[in-house]
């Protein structure tokens, strides 16, 4: 594979071949250019006054760059609260998901025991259950236990919702690790449980990172659960918070602030994507297809 790549990079431009591919180039370039135009315009609009946006003079910056849109959105519009909430939900639930899923995936991939197959297939079934099938009883149960309106409830829900996907993903990953590590550890007198935490879990790092990014993005962008369970402003995450901002914008007309909020919500995932796009793409094609 690696050899192949080097050969490709050194290949001189063969104009005849490239000409044949021209229609393909045109189609995807148009698509990507459109994406870029929208993103650049949004960025420019977030630095313009609402008046400039309304009059269509966004890319001229006649009155300079208006960074106050950002401070305005960040402080006055509560975006800082939404941002901190999303960060908390995404980080804590990512760790929680791994702590529950990794051991289960390891045991399921390494040992045969009663119910092993049943559990594996229930995980796949659970992955395809639409969240509308579960949200109503969860709501009534949470109300009965008086735990609605807390951050912990949202974190627990995000953890439980993502355990099936993560366990299935890691199950395949642990399957690819050689058993010789465990055998060597056993000879040295290391207990199986210790072997997992000290040797196998660190070895699974590439898989853990991929699935971790996935869960982070999923929780960061989550909307539905947040809408049902984070009704007050201080619990809202970025997705649902932005939704209420858009609604508020209709009365205030602060378009500049709105676009600044959009950029703030979008930026962390965008930066993560720039550095991790290979991992993310590998995760889509690796985890999604199975089952």
């Amino acid at each position: 594979m690696a050899k192949n790549k080097i050969k490709k990079m050194r290949e001189p431009i063969n104009w005849k071949k490239e000409l044949k591919l021209l229609p393909g180039y045109i189609i995807i370039t148009l698509w990507v250019v459109f994406t870029a135009v929208v993103l650049i315009w949004i960025l420019a609009a977030s630095l313009s006054t609402s008046k400039e946006i309304y009059s269509g003079a966004v890319l001229e910056f006649k009155s300079g760059f208006h960074f106050e849109n950002y401070s305005n959105a960040w402080n006055a519009q509560n975006v800082s609260v939404f941002f901190a909430n999303s960060l908390l939900y995404a980080t804590v639930s990512c760790i929680g998901i791994i702590l529950i899923s990794a051991p289960a995936a390891y045991v399921l991939s390494r040992f045969t025991f009663l119910g092993n197959k049943t559990i594996k297939s229930s995980l796949i079934v659970a992955m395809s259950i639409p969240s509308i099938m579960v949200i109503l009883p969860v709501f009534s149960q949470a109300t009965a236990w008086h735990i609605t309106g807390t951050r912990w409830l949202l974190i627990i829900l995000y953890i439980c919702l993502n355990v099936p996907f993560t366990t299935t993903f890691l199950l395949n990953f642990f399957g690819t690790l050689s058993r010789t590590y465990e055998e060597a550890a056993a000879i040295d007198g290391c207990s199986p449980m210790k072997t997992f935490w000290v040797i196998m879990l660190p070895l699974a790092q590439p898989g853990l990172i991929t699935v971790g990014i996935f869960n982070f993005l999923a929780v960061w962008n989550e909307y539905f659960v947040a809408m049902v369970f984070a009704s007050s402003d201080k619990l809202k995450s970025v997705g649902y918070g932005l939704f209420s901002l858009v609604a508020a914008m209709r009365s205030t007309g602060d378009l500049g602030g709105l676009f600044a909020a959009v950029v703030i919500v979008f930026l962390p995932t965008f930066i993560l994507y720039i550095f991790m796009s290979e991992k993310i793409i590998a995760g889509v094609t690796g985890g999604g297809i199975k089952g």
Binding site: P103, F113, V134
Partner: peptide, 24 residues
């Protein structure tokens, strides 16, 4: 080890999927 490692995942399946689906 099997019991210790599987229990949290199974509990999460029950509270998030099995019980809510049946109740719905």
């Amino acid at each position: 080890m099997i019991v210790a490692f599987m229990t949290p995942a199974i509990i999460s399946l029950f509270i998030m999927f099995v019980y809510p689906v049946i109740r719905t």
